[in-house]
């Protein structure tokens, strides 16, 4: 679905990503792991078009593409749920889900139709704990906010959803809620890339695991080929200490 080859990205003197290769297959959940500062967020933002890439190629469904801004990635069907969610607290759930893509009827906002679509999307994801979809986002719990951000991302016929640390700020119950949600996205036929350094979560939802280490892709493979210990090792050493060597996947 999405293929990245040789991606470089630097900020001034800081080289955030070196020659990163990444494959995100369709209808599967790919987990991107790595210690803090490994470059996971930067990689996500490069795919989403927030940052421009220095070198490297991105292939979408086999074709090379150039993503210069958030609209480009949205046009391809890539939606991103950022670490900070970027919801406007003062707006309600419907208003947030349609922010920037409001529907109009004779020049004015078509609230009824937007509310209906938002309700459909939320119930298709079985997000049912919110009391009313007209409540302001400020009044939601962390898990509910995450659900709204995800629902916002999947409403636009998106094919790939990128999620940056969706469970980092959540408690046990709310984490459960979000992991279930990720499973449901896969069941709907979407590709998902989820960033996490909580290995419980990773092993629960991921079909594939990729590990970034100091801006390099240390390894990428099927989740079943990893165990906890090996992932931790890749995260902390980049796999240098491993003798058997599951080589960082090329091509």
């Amino acid at each position: 679905m999405l293929k990245i080859r040789g991606l470089d990205k630097h900020f001034g003197p800081v080289q955030a990503l070196y020659h990163v290769d990444l494959d995100i297959p369709p209808r599967q959940v790919t987990a991107l792991c790595g210690d803090n500062g490994a470059g996971k967020t930067v990689l996500t933002k490069c795919i989403a078009g927030i940052y421009s890439i220095d070198h490297g190629e991105i292939f979408w469904e086999g074709r090379p593409v150039h993503i210069h801004n958030a609209r480009d990635s949205a046009r391809l069907g890539i939606e991103t749920v950022y670490q900070d969610l970027a919801l406007a607290d003062n707006l309600d759930i419907v208003q947030n889900m349609f922010l920037g893509r409001e529907r109009l009827r004779s020049g004015l906002l078509d609230e009824d139709s937007m509310e209906r679509s938002a309700a459909e999307t939320l119930s298709s994801l079985r997000v049912t704990t919110v009391k009313s979809i007209r409540q302001p986002v400020a009044s939601l719990s962390g898990g509910q906010r995450q659900s709204v951000a995800v629902a916002k991302a999947v409403m636009w016929n998106s094919k790939l959803v990128l999620m940056d640390e969706p469970t980092a700020a959540l408690g046990v119950v709310q984490t459960r809620m979000v992991l279930d949600l990720i499973g449901r996205l896969r069941d709907k036929g979407l590709a998902v890339m989820v960033i996490s350094h909580n290995l419980n979560d990773v092993f629960e939802v991921a079909d594939n695991i990729a590990v970034l280490y100091l801006g390099r892709m240390a390894v990428q493979d099927k989740a079943t080929n990893f165990d906890r210990q090996s992932v931790v090792e890749y995260m902390t050493t980049g796999g240098l200490g491993r003798s058997s060597g599951r080589p960082a996947k090329e091509g």
Binding site: A70, A86, N90, L91, Q95, N96, L99, G100
Partner: peptide
């Protein structure tokens, strides 16, 4: 209350970063 412009004004007042990412 009923136009895109108004909605964007509130969005910027509530969270400018969210508004920016929404393409406003």
């Amino acid at each position: 209350g009923r136009t895109k412009y108004g909605r964007y004004l509130y969005a910027i007042g509530g969270n400018p970063e969210a508004a920016r990412r929404a393409g406003i």
